[in-house]
């Protein structure tokens, strides 16, 4: 029984079909990486999973619960799914620690003191304990993104969705964020990661899916996708990535 399963998921924005009959299974404690060109549907797929987008057709199950029948409590679902965005989206009017404690105190009704203790532990873990009382605009991009991850983790999610979280970062800041994700994978967190970091995907993923114009045209273990891709489109894509020096 997969932790996440998508069956025939289709999503269009107007005439633009972004996902076509996508099938995907993600087992618990596994890491799945979505690769593919910009606009291939990676972000949309992630957003459909926590109902930031509503699918047009098909079925999504998360943790044994069908989420696409319109009956699910959206806020309850999102409590167990953390998502981190490319643009961090920290709340600029709150300190780092308030960013992290907002959802636990308001949504899960954890006491302020408990939420702060837990937030401090999380900030310690991501190496930013001393930034707790700073505002986000005083942090580097890499630090902001780590806080965004901590903010999602504070809700103790069972699934993490990472949407190109290093794409907006200066190259020298990418490593600190990926190290954190790697540690997260080692703790057994189930994750679906849309990424352009191919070597990272190769190292951390249990399964890699290549998205091409809204279709998962190839999926498999990373060794297979990166070393012996079956589909010509996958090969083409990887050749271009290689040429750009990103593999």
């Amino acid at each position: 029984m997969s932790f996440v399963s998508l069956r025939n998921v289709t999503k269009a924005f107007g005439d633009n079909v972004v996902l076509r009959d996508v099938d995907l299974q993600v087992d618990e404690h596994n890491v799945v990486c979505l690769i593919g060109a910009s606009g291939s549907g990676k972000s949309t797929l992630l957003r459909c999973l926590n109902l930031l987008e509503v699918v047009d057709r098909g079925e999504i199950e998360v943790d044994g619960q069908t989420i696409t029948n319109g009956q699910v409590d959206v806020n309850a679902l999102r409590r167990k799914i953390g998502i981190v965005f490319q643009a961090y989206n920290l709340f600029p009017h709150m300190t780092v620690i308030d960013n992290v404690t907002l959802a636990p105190t308001k949504v899960r009704r954890v006491s302020k003191a408990d939420a702060r203790d837990r937030a401090k532990d999380l900030l310690e873990r991501i190496g930013l304990a001393e930034k707790a009382d700073e505002f986000p605009d005083r942090l580097s991009g890499g630090q902001q993104q780590r806080v965004a991850i901590a903010r999602a983790l504070a809700m103790e999610p069972k699934l993490m969705l990472l949407d190109e979280i290093t794409s907006a970062l200066d190259p020298q800041l990418v490593a600190e964020v990926l190290t954190l994700v790697r540690e997260l994978a080692e703790t057994g967190m189930t994750m679906i990661i849309a990424t352009h970091e191919m070597s990272f995907a190769r190292e951390v993923a249990n399964k890699v899916c290549f998205l091409d114009e809204g279709v998962i045209s190839e999926e498999g273990p990373p060794e297979q996708i990166f070393s012996a891709p079956q589909q010509p489109r996958t090969r083409e894509f990887l050749a271009r990535v290689l040429a750009a020096g990103r593999l």
Binding site: F85, N89, R151, A152, M155
Partner: peptide
Amino acid sequence: QRMAARSLGL
């Protein structure tokens, strides 16, 4: 900003 808040379950 709203999206980030909603996706935290708010």
